[in-house]
């Protein structure tokens, strides 16, 4: 019972943090408050009995904060004063409200909180120790039962990183500043 109350508190904190992120003027403060939301999320994972994901979320959050601060620091640091068209603002709010109303009906058909329907996972839990031998069942799902998924997701990571490289690549006169040639340069 205490776990559920703590989860409510953490979720309210996350909602407040993301509202600050959306509405604050200074971009550096926005980035830092989204970092606070991420750390609160890792705390929530810890209370939901998922220590693997809590570790991953903390470490990934640090790295994404570094990347986002790298992007926003030293360029113009203030949000844009002018707003979107007033119509688009209100349309977005109406749209979001409709989504929330329909989501409330959709949640009625989900399994109740705290009683998951574990049809596939029951097999993994029963046979995991005998068939794989790993005592961390999350790892045995990632790298044995569903290793093909992991291979595909590694490819997705590779694709996004190569897309970033293509975008960041220097052309023509800037080519000699490319980091692939830095060894010859220095």
């Amino acid at each position: 019972m205490e776990t559920i109350i703590i989860l409510h508190i953490i979720l309210v904190f996350m909602i407040i943090g993301s509202l600050i992120t959306v509405e604050i003027r200074n971009m550096l403060s926005a980035v830092i408050s989204v970092g606070a939301v991420g750390f609160a999320l890792s705390l929530a994972f810890l209370f939901l009995d998922a220590p693997d994901i809590a570790i991953t979320q903390v470490i990934v959050e640090i790295l994404s904060l570094v990347i986002l601060i790298r992007a926003t620091i030293k360029v113009d640091n203030v949000a844009i004063e002018k707003r979107e068209h007033i119509l688009s603002d209100r349309t977005a709010l109406i749209f979001v409200g409709m989504i929330l109303v329909f989501a409330w009906f959709a949640f009625q058909s989900l399994p109740t909180f705290g009683e998951p329907s574990m049809r596939v996972s029951q097999y993994y839990l029963m046979n995991g120790l005998r068939e794989v031998g790993a005592t961390n069942f999350v790892t045995s799902v990632i790298l044995d039962y569903r290793a093909y998924d992991t291979l595909g997701e590694a490819m997705v990571l590779f694709t996004s990183i190569s897309g970033a490289f293509v975008i960041l690549r220097r052309w023509k006169k800037e080519q000699d500043k490319d980091f692939l040639r830095i060894d010859r340069e220095h």
């Binding site: 220590p51 693997d52 570790i55 991953t56 470490i59 990934v60 640090i62 790295l63 570094v66 790993a134 005592t135 961390n136 999350v138 790892t139 045995s140 990632i142 790298l143």
Partner: peptide, 24 residues
Amino acid sequence: IVLYGHITPGGGFPGGVMIALVYI
């Protein structure tokens, strides 16, 4: 974290990000 990933919480993904963080 990487080498004990199949016994304790951890694994390749958080360990890899942590090793990247050292160089960063």
